[in-house]
Write a protein that binds this DNA or RNA. Structure first.
Length: 166
DNA sequence: CCACGGTGGTAGA
DNA sequence: TCTACCACCGTGG
């Protein structure tokens, strides 16, 4: 059972999806208009509470601040490798970054840095599973599923300095 | 700057 | 199985 609901922010309307286990997906604003409903109708009380937590967390990160708390994250969709990558990324504190290679080394697959990139691209909850803090070695940006323009913007708000000038 | 080879995980056929 | 993708990385022109 899935509930899909908009999350309004000063940067646009994100779209959250919830399973019975918690937040299962988060999409960055797409150019196109979402439906205009408030998003609270028809949601069970539990999901409404998770939605409120999600909204506050998203707004905090967008403002470059650490969220006070997160809803439960439902990452059950990924493979074991992907989940281990996502778990590792969750440990990158706001204001810091790691490289794809460092993530690979941390999960004891030092040669799988390329696959780490793939797992980042498959991350269902970008922003709250902060794959924007994962950069290429040598200062490159890498990619970002929500649109590459977000990556340097988010990092700048988090106070990260050396986000590569090209 | 560019090209290339060595990589590991995934999806699809 | 086989194969063709990749948000990689180091080395060498």
């Amino acid at each position: 059972m899935k509930f899909i609901t908009p999350i309004e922010t000063p940067d646009g309307t994100f779209t959250a999806s919830f399973s019975e286990r918690g937040l299962a997906g988060l999409e960055f604003p797409s150019g196109r208009r979402q439906r205009a409903d408030a998003g609270n109708v028809d949601l069970p009380a539990q999901v409404r509470q998770w939605r409120a937590l999600t909204a506050r967390a998203v707004q905090a990160v967008l403002a470059g601040r650490k969220p006070a708390s997160l809803p439960p994250l439902d990452l059950s969709g990924g493979t074991e490798f992907q989940r281990s990558v996502w778990e590792e990324i969750r440990s990158i504190v706001l204001g810091k970054t790691k490289t794809y290679g460092q993530i690979a080394a941390a999960i004891r697959r030092p040669r799988a840095m390329r696959a780490v990139g793939g797992a980042c691209g498959a991350n269902p909850i970008p922003l709250l599973v902060p794959c924007h803090r994962v950069l290429a070695s040598g200062g490159g940006l890498g990619g970002f599923s929500g649109g590459l323009k977000w990556k340097p913007l988010l990092l700048a708000r988090e106070g990260v300095k050396s986000v590569s000038a090209r």
